[in-house]
Nucleic acid binder design. Structure first.
Lengths: 148, 148
DNA sequence: AGTGAGATTTAGAACAATTCCAATTATTGT
DNA sequence: ACAATAATTGGAATTGTTCTAAATCTCACT
């Protein structure tokens, strides 16, 4: 019953096919990159990572493929104010905590119970397809990276 | 005790002064525009509205003033995915409902109780300065505008 | 294996929103 | 009145993304 996550190229291919799309090396590598390091990279960052494996890929393709993965519901696009869009392969309902110090983003799982509570603030007639919750602040005890 | 909303130029001036800033005609008019029609206009839209009163104003100034008002906590900047930033003079805690059909945005008041519940999903160590909640979907019974 | 329709990728141009810059123009305190 | 500081301005520059048209690939069918 855990058909929500495509952890293998085969499952990815299946998911794409469901939407009438093809599995291509570019799409596979990009999806792989997102799964490998789940730090909510931007398109540019994905581009940089993908290029180590596939030096000839173009930035336009990275944008195209990311968009495709979002369309197939394999990836979520996340925006923080005016910054570049970030991409996230975590499909479970979750909020984002944006650490202003480090700029990093953490997934916070959202129990269905809380989601229901939040939806309950909507007056009748408001039909929400999606809810997005973003925290902004400081996460204590960040594993300090070695950059001075 | 309702010192949170500057409904008059004087109160605006006071709020600006608190941050060591001056009240200027541009700032007053822009803030007035936001109060007058609370439909979450973009900078461009604010620019257009302000120009009817002050034709010589520059777009750069509109951006500057909006940023200033945000800094003084008189206005909230709101972002929906990649769209232009929108501005909102409603300072009470509220979520936004973004109607995908009409593109319009509605404020949804957030009871403190709900906000607390939402904050409660944060693991210890996560210190959120702000929480943003955005709904996306279809609001029934939208007063249909006359565009065909 | 060959062919054609359609999907995909690509490089680069174009675009939208915003910020930056350096030069004026106001405003304030002395 | 005058210097110091703040604010505004037009235009150039930047950023992130989308568009475009051409090249390439893939698949189904012969």
């Amino acid at each position: 019953m855990e058909s929500n996550v495509a952890t293998t190229p085969e499952v990815l291919a299946q998911r794409l096919a469901n939407s009438g799309l093809r599995a291509t090396p570019q799409r596979e590598i990009i999806y792989g990159v997102l799964l490998k390091k789940r730090d909510h990279p931007t398109a540019d960052e994905v581009y940089a990572r993908v290029r180590t494996d596939m030096p000839g890929i173009s930035l336009a393709t990275v944008y195209n493929c990311l968009e495709t993965l979002v369309q197939c519901d394999l990836v979520r696009a996340v925006n923080f104010e005016r910054g570049p869009t970030r991409y996230c392969p975590n499909l479970r309902p979750h909020a984002h905590f944006h650490d202003e110090q480090s700029g990093s983003t953490h997934d916070i799982d959202l129990p269905a119970e809380i989601l229901d509570k939040v939806r309950s603030v909507l007056p009748p007639g408001y039909n929400a397809k999606s809810v997005e919750i973003t925290f902004r602040g400081k996460a204590a005890d960040e594993q300090k990276s070695s950059q001075p």
